[in-house]
C-alpha cells in the first residue's frame, strides 16, 4: 500500500514538474522575443555607445580611441550646462503641472459615470497626434500676437506673453504645449481612482471628514503608487524632451533659423552634435551623461517615495 502511495506521489510530482517545465518554456517563449529585442535594440546599442563615447567617431570613418577626452570636453562646453539647465527647468515646470492637470481630469471623469469611457477616449486622442504636427499647431496657438491662447487670455483682461519668442516664456509655453498629451496619465489615474474602496470614503464621511480631507487622507495615499509611477515616467520623458521643441524651434518651422537658446534641450544638443556636426563619439558621451543624470534623479525619487507611497499589502 505504501509502495502504491509512493508511486502515486511520484507520478503527481512528475506531472507537476512537467507542467512547470511547460509553463517555464511558454514563459520563456513569451518573454524571449522581448529579450531578443532588448539585447539587439537596447542593450547592444547602449554598450556600443559606451565604447563610442571614448572615441572620435564621425559615422563615416573608423572610430579611434580618445580616452576620456569627450567627457572632459563636456565640462568645458558651456552649451552642455545650458542644455541641462533648460531641460531640468522644463522638467520641474512640466511634471508637476502634468500630474495636477491629469489628476484633476481623472477625478472629473471618475464622477461622470457611464459617459467616462467616451471622455476617456477623447482625452487620450491627443496622445495619438504626431508630435511634429502638435508642435506646428502649437506654434500657431501660442503666438504672442494672434495666438488663440493670448486671445482667450485677452478676453479676461490678461495681456499674455510672447510664448514662443520671449526667452522667459519659452519653457513654460512648451510645458503648456505638452499638457496636450496628458491623456495617458489620465487613464492611469482613473484606473487607480476606481480601485479606491468606497467604504473608506463612507467611513470618513461618517467621521465628519470633508471633501478636501477625504482627498488628502484617502485618495492621495491610495493612488500614491500610480502617482509615483507617473512621476518617474514623466520625469524621464521630460528629461528627454525633443520632438516638440525641435519642431517648434529648430526643425524647419517658422522658427527654424531662430534656434532659441532657451529651447536648447539636452537631447536636441546631443542630436546637433551627432547628426549636425558628425561628432558621434561626443554625442555618445553626452547620452551617457544624460543616462547618469536620469539614474540619479530616479534613485532620489525612489528613495523619497518610500516615505510617501502606499503599497497595499506591504504596510499597515
Amino acid at each position: 500500500m505504501a509502495a502504491v502511495t509512493t508511486a502515486a506521489t511520484r507520478v503527481r510530482q512528475k506531472k507537476r514538474k512537467g507542467t512547470r517545465s511547460r509553463e517555464a518554456r511558454a514563459a520563456y517563449g513569451f518573454i524571449g522575443i522581448w529579450i531578443v529585442g532588448f539585447l539587439v535594440f537596447t542593450l547592444g546599442p547602449m554598450i556600443a555607445s559606451l565604447v563610442l563615447s571614448f572615441t572620435d567617431y564621425n559615422a563615416i570613418s573608423s572610430p579611434h580611441n580618445v580616452g576620456w577626452a569627450n567627457y572632459r570636453q563636456m565640462f568645458s562646453d558651456p552649451k552642455v550646462g545650458k542644455a541641462l539647465a533648460n531641460t531640468l527647468v522644463y522638467a520641474v515646470i512640466y511634471v508637476p503641472a502634468a500630474m495636477v492637470v491629469a489628476l484633476a481630469l481623472a477625478m472629473v471623469l471618475n464622477r461622470v459615470g457611464r459617459a467616462s469611457g467616451f471622455f476617456r477616449t477623447v482625452f487620450y486622442l491627443p496622445v495619438m497626434t504626431p508630435p511634429v504636427a502638435a508642435g506646428a499647431l502649437f506654434l500657431l496657438l501660442l503666438n504672442g500676437n494672434q495666438g488663440l491662447l493670448n486671445r482667450t487670455l485677452h478676453l479676461v483682461g490678461i495681456n499674455g506673453p510672447n510664448w514662443t519668442t520671449d526667452t522667459a516664456w519659452v519653457k513654460p509655453g512648451l510645458a503648456l504645449t505638452m499638457l496636450w498629451g496628458v491623456g495617458g496619465m489620465v487613464v492611469i489615474y482613473l484606473a487607480a481612482l476606481r480601485q479606491v474602496p468606497k467604504d473608506l470614503y463612507e467611513a470618513a464621511s461618517l467621521d465628519g471628514a470633508g471633501a478636501w480631507m477625504r482627498f488628502r487622507k484617502i485618495t492621495l495615499p491610495m493612488i500614491s503608487g500610480a502617482l509615483f509611477f507617473t512621476l518617474i515616467v514623466q520625469t524621464i520623458s521630460a528629461l528627454q524632451m525633443f520632438d516638440q521643441a525641435y519642431t517648434m524651434f529648430f526643425g524647419g518651422q517658422q522658427n527654424s533659423t531662430y534656434s532659441n537658446d532657451a529651447a536648447l534641450f539636452y537631447v536636441i544638443y546631443l542630436f546637433q552634435q551627432g547628426f549636425g556636426f558628425l561628432h558621434m563619439g561626443y554625442a555618445s558621451a553626452l547620452a551617457w551623461l544624460l543616462f547618469i543624470v536620469i539614474m540619479i534623479i530616479t534613485a532620489i525619487q525612489v528613495r523619497v517615495s518610500r516615505r510617501f507611497v502606499y503599497y497595499e499589502g506591504e504596510r499597515d
Partner: peptide, 18 residues
C-alpha cells in the same frame, strides 16, 4: 524604471543607430 533608464541610455545609441 530600469528599462526606461536603458531607453534613455539608448539615446546614446544614435551613433550605433547610424
Amino acid at each position: 524604471i530600469t528599462r526606461r533608464g536603458f531607453l534613455t541610455g539608448s539615446a546614446g545609441a544614435l551613433a550605433l543607430g547610424a
